[in-house]
């Protein structure tokens, strides 16, 4: 127990790194995923194909492979990324965007086609129809699955531990080496810090859900 308290500064550093990865990749994934979803429901066939291709690659590739690509493969082609957080954020974003896209797309599809028709009938363009009418209504159904995606993302940041990023899991591993008799306590501390991110995420989600809800 004392060893955990002694290690708190290190755990805190790991925690902030994990939080950084989760928040930055989360925000980027929400933006990229929403754009991809717009591609996938676009009236233009070429955009739909581009969107579908990116999504299928992103969500059908194991996250570790995505990391391997950005950390080891891409540099061999000449695009050298700084080691550490940058490739981790990119890999997490590529992977998570695909899931965000599918959650948003299912939300868009849950909005009746009549809503989009009415929007187009008063002269709104495709982008306005989506941003003013369809997406605000899609949010209602999209928030719960999106939170699942973001919680999964938070846990997925631990893959970065294998790629030279000292986040929570990597910190836990090294602390377990330093205090072999207190491994359980150390891992408990690591788990606690993950919960510090994921539990508020769930609570915030509930609050957002209550705000965007309205009766049809």
């Amino acid at each position: 127990m004392d060893s955990v308290i002694e290690s708190l500064p290190k755990l805190w550093d790991g925690f902030t790194t994990t939080l950084f990865l989760a928040v930055v990749s989360g925000v980027l994934s929400l933006v990229v995923g929403t754009v991809l979803a717009a591609f996938r429901v676009s009236p233009l066939r070429s955009l739909r194909i581009i969107g579908a291709t990116i999504v299928e690659i992103g969500r059908n590739t194991p996250l570790t492979l995505v990391f391997v690509f950005f950390v080891f493969i891409l540099p061999t082609t000449g695009y050298i990324l700084p080691l550490g957080r940058v490739p981790a954020v990119i890999a997490l974003t590529v992977y998570t965007s695909a899931f965000v896209c599918e959650a948003v797309r299912s939300g868009i599809n849950s909005v009746g086609v009549g809503q989009a028709e009415a929007a187009r009938a008063i002269g709104l363009g495709t982008v306005q129809t989506l941003s003013l009418v369809v997406i605000p209504q899609a949010l209602r159904t999209v928030v719960p699955p999106l939170i699942n995606v973001l919680i999964a993302l938070t846990k997925n940041t631990s893959v970065a531990a294998g790629f030279a990023v000292v986040e929570l899991t990597a910190t836990g591993r090294s602390l377990a080496r330093d205090f072999p008799t207190d491994v359980l306590w150390m891992l408990g501390g690591v788990a606690f810090f993950y919960l510090v991110i994921t539990i508020p995420a769930g609570t915030i989600a509930g609050a957002i859900e209550r705000r965007v809800v309205f009766s049809r």
Partner: peptide, 12 residues
């Protein structure tokens, strides 16, 4: 102007 059978008022 268009008026639909199912109204289609923006629900939100």
């Amino acid at each position: 102007g268009m008026v639909f059978q199912s109204f289609n008022l923006f629900a939100h």
